[in-house]
Design a protein around this nucleic acid. Structure first.
Lengths: 342, 342
DNA sequence: GTGATCGATTAAACCGGTTTAAAAGCTCAA
DNA sequence: TTGAGCTTTTAAACCGGTTTAATCGATCAC
C-alpha cells in the first residue's frame, strides 16, 4: 500500500532520458540542454521525487548530519538551559539543507572519547560541535586524528585547527562587577566553575581583572563545579569568612540560585544583607525570590551561527573565519542592591 | 594518509572467499562451514574491518537510528531535567547496537509535524519516541500514516497502535497528597499543567481523587502551563483566595520553585505559613530554600526501557508488550510541614 | 557408473544515487 | 566527404554492503 517512493530511474523513464542525465539535472550540473533540464525537473516534480539520502550518503560519502556530544553526569540530572535553545538554533539551520542532528549524552570522559570515535567510525556525522571547551582539551587532538571537522564554541586556549564561534563571556562578567561596584560594594566574592573549563576561567579572570581595575581584591574566590550542591557549599564557605562578602558573583545561575537558598537558610536577606548575581539567565532566574541579577546570552543565535560555520567548513571551500557573536549582557533584577551602610 | 577503511571485499580477498560468504559469516547466517566462518572472522578482525552503515542502510533500508522530537518554546529557555537523563538512558542502549539518536527541537506544532514528516521522508530514523503525550494526540495518526514505528512514553488516552512504556505519575501524586493530609492539611490546592497533556491531567485527577477519598475538595485548582512564569501567576491567584490554601501541590518543580518565590515575596514563610510540593525532583529542588518536597522518577531507566522497546518493535518479531516501570515516589524535604494551628 | 541429493560456495543482481569515460549528434572548415 | 571540435547524452562503473539463484563437489542410492 505504501507505494514505493519514486527513484531516480522512475524520473529518468518518465522524462525519457538516462539516470545520469537526471542526476545532472537535479544537481544543477552544466552540460545539459535547458529544455532537457526542464523536462527532467518537471518529471521529478510530477512524481514527487525526493532524493534518498541513504543512497546519496553511500555514493558521496557524506552523512548529511552533524553531531553533538554532551558530557553530563546523569546522577546530577543537570540540564543546561543553554542547550535546548542552542540545539533549536542548530536545528533551524539543518532543517533547510535536509540535515539532521545526532546527539549523544555521555556520562564520563571515557564515554566521551568513545562517543566521538563512534560518530567518526560509523560515519554518522560530517562534523561536530565542540562545547564546554577545556584547557588542553584532548578532544582537539582526538578530532584532528579522526579527521572529523569541528567547530569550537568559543576559542580554545591553545592552538586549534578548527574555526571558533565565539560568544564572549567576559564583557558580561565585567558588567556584573561594575554594576556591583556602582552599588557601593567593595567586598565582592566569586564562585567559579571548575578551572578545567575555559569558560570557567574566563569568567573568573574577568572578575578578578575588573576588581583589580578598581584597585580591589576579591573578597573570596571559591572554585566550585557549576552544580547546585557546589553552589551551596561554596556559599557557606564565603559566608563563614571573617570579612563576609557583601556580594557574590556566581559563574552560573544554578550555583547562584542554590547560593541564594543557602544565604536565606543562613538567615540573610537578599539583597539587603547580600547581593547575588548569576550567569546564563536561565528560566528560573527571573522567578526565584528575589529575581536574580544575571547575564544573558543568545544561545539560539549561537546554535545558528555554529551550524552555519560548521557547514561552511564541511563544504570546505577554503578557510573558514571565526565568528564573533554579540556578547552576553547584564540583566539587573532584585538580587543585587545598593550596599547599606551598617 | 587516512588509509581507506577495509571493505567487505578486502576481507573476502584476505580470507580467499567471495563477498557473499563474508556477508554470511559476519551476519551469522547458517550454511557456511565452521572453518570458513572462522577464517573470515579472523580476516575481518586482522584488517580491523567495521561495517559501513551507509552501505548497510542502503541495502537493508534501515537507518539504524531512532528519533526524538521535542517541542519546546525557545523563548522560554525551558529545559527539562527529565530529558537529559532520559536521553542518556536511550543512548546507553543505542551505543551497543551501533545506533544513533537523532534529535529535533522544534518550537511549535507546525514545525513538530514537519519534523516527523522530515524524519520519515528522509528515512533518518527507524522509529521515534513519542513524549509529552496529549489528549487526542494528532501525532499518533500522523505516525500511523507515515508508517513510522513509535513508542509512547506513558499511555495515550485513546486507542493507540504503539506500545507504551509507562512510568505512572499517579502514585507519586497520591503520596504527596497523603503526606500533606497526614501533616494535618485540609485546604490543599493544585497547580496543574495544561490539560492538553495527558500527564498534566493524570496528575490533576490523582490529586482530586485522593482528596475525595479523604472526603475533601481541592482548596483551589489552577490550570497553568508548567513554566515558572505560570507558576508565579497561579500561586498569586491561590494566595489571594478568601480561604487561602495551607498547602499547594504543583505539577512540576519549575512551577513549584517559582511558586515558592512568589509565596516568599508575598511575605509568607514556607513551610510555616504554606507547604509546597513539586514534581520531578529536578536538580535545584534539593537546594532551594527550603528544600522542595517533590516526586522523583528515574528518567534514565525510562530512556533505557523506551529504547529497548522501540528496538523490539522495529526488529518486529510479533507484538511488543507494554512496559510498566516503577512509579515515581515521594521525596520529603523541608518545604512541607505540619500544619500549625493558628 | 549414473543420477539424485545435499551442503558449501560463488557470481551477479540489487539498494538509489553519483561520476566517469565514451558515444552520439551537430556544426563547420578544409 | 571527411573529420575536427563542440555540445549533449548515455552506458557503465562505483559506493559497500545484502540477497538470490546458480554452481560446484562430495556423498549416496540404485
Amino acid at each position: 500500500m505504501a507505494k514505493d517512493r519514486p527513484t531516480i530511474a522512475d524520473v529518468a523513464a518518465r522524462a525519457g532520458v538516462s539516470k545520469g542525465s537526471v542526476s545532472f539535472a537535479l544537481n544543477g550540473r552544466p552540460g545539459l540542454a535547458q529544455a532537457t533540464v526542464d523536462r527532467i525537473l518537471a518529471a521529478a516534480d510530477e512524481l514527487g521525487w525526493r532524493p534518498s539520502n541513504r543512497a546519496r550518503s553511500l555514493s558521496v560519502s557524506k552523512a548529511f548530519a552533524l553531531g553533538l556530544v554532551l558530557t553530563r553526569d546523569p546522577a546530577v540530572l543537570t540540564s543546561d538551559p543553554f542547550f535546548s535553545a542552542f540545539i533549536a538554533g542548530v536545528e533551524s539551520v539543518l532543517s533547510r539543507g535536509g540535515q539532521a542532528l545526532v546527539l549523544q549524552v555521555v556520562t564520563d570522559g571515557e564515554d566521551e572519547v568513545a562517543g566521538y570515535r563512534r560518530l567518526a567510525r560509523d560515519g554518522r556525522v560530517d562534523g561536530v560541535f565542540l562545547s564546554d571547551l577545556r584547557h588542553d582539551d584532548p578532544r582537539i587532538d582526538l578530532l584532528s586524528e579522526l579527521g572529523l571537522p569541528a567547530v569550537t564554541l568559543n576559542r580554545p586556549v591553545g592552538a586549534s585547527p578548527f574555526p571558533a564561534v565565539c560568544l564572549d563571556d567576559r564583557p558580561g562578567t565585567v558588567e556584573v562587577v561594575e554594576h556591583l561596584l556602582q552599588l557601593g560594594h567593595r567586598r565582592i566574592a566569586h564562585v567559579a566553575g571548575p578551572p578545567t573549563f575555559v569558560h570557567a576561567t574566563a569568567r573568573a579572570d574577568a572578575f578578578v581583572a575588573t576588581l583589580a581595575d578598581a584597585g580591589l581584591e576579591p573578597a573570596g574566590l571559591e572554585i566550585s563545579d557549576f552544580t547546585a550542591a557546589g553552589g551551596i557549599e561554596a556559599t557557606r564557605k564565603l559566608l563563614a569568612l571573617e570579612q563576609r562578602p557583601t556580594a557574590i558573583v556566581y559563574a552560573n545561575d544554578r550555583m547562584a540560585i542554590a547560593g541564594l537558598g543557602a544565604a536565606q537558610q543562613a538567615g540573610l536577606t537578599v539583597p539587603d544583607d547580600l547581593s547575588i548575581a548569576g550567569f546564563d539567565d536561565s528560566e528560573l532566574a527571573e522567578f526565584v525570590h528575589p529575581g536574580l541579577t544575571t547575564v544573558r546570552a543568545d544561545p539560539y543565535a549561537f546554535g545558528e551561527a555554529a551550524a552555519t560555520t560548521l557547514n561552511q567548513l564541511i563544504d570546505g571551500s577554503g578557510d573558514v573565519a571565526d565568528v564573533e557573536l554579540p556578547p552576553a549582557r547584564l540583566v539587573v533584577r532584585r538580587s543585587t542592591a545598593r550596599l547599606e551602610e551598617s
